[in-house]
Amino acid sequence: MPSFFPYRFCPLGDSAVVAVFGDTIEDALNRHVIALCKKMQDLSPAFVTDLLPAYSSLTVFYDIHVVQQIKPGYISGYDYVCHYLENIFKQGVDTAVTEEETVVRIPVCYEDEFAPDMQELAKIKQLSTNEIVQLHSAKKYRVYMIGFLPGFAYMGKVEEAIAVPRKKLPQPVRAGSVGIAGEQTGIYPLSSPGGWHIIGRTPVKLFNTTGNDPVLLKAGNIVQFYPISRYEYKHY
């Protein structure tokens, strides 16, 4: 069954158009955005230079010089791209489970050494650290989008019981750190300042510059964390 969502277009300057499908974090909505992005990748029209699927929007970047060569003279480049997308969007898109939704299992060591904010979170949420580990690793999470840093996956939603607002001040975070912010969970692929509560670290590399596929996680993936010991982390 093809899925449809109402949308609106707005320009992001003279070289990109944002298609906005909503303003909430919903799996069905996000699945629709990612399926449309995939469809655009498959079609790969010559004028498209880049695509950014987000929670509830798809941004299409285009090369105005290429558009200029193919569009009729009486419409702007922006209008041409919007019409093109409209034609794609009105066909709907099949969001039946795609290959992206294969489950990626990611080991996490939740021990103190790697979890600077675990105790604070336990205190705020009135839970034991074991309960937090249990809750965090029991659920499968959807990767809604990649952003912030290369390969940084915004995932959700975590159980209400462990959801916690961002920290007031960003602190240095080590690469591989697994954190929670609001109902989202994520992994820092690189060391960076960040405001998420860090409750563990994965030995898995999420980002590398050697191959042609620089990031491990992609929008639409399903992630399940599993706890490992400090020993397993060191010898991973």
Partner: peptide, 11 residues
């Protein structure tokens, strides 16, 4: 609050 969405050079 706004849900994260695309930015570009010049935003």
């Amino acid at each position: 609050e706004m849900l994260s969405s695309a930015t570009a050079f010049g935003t």
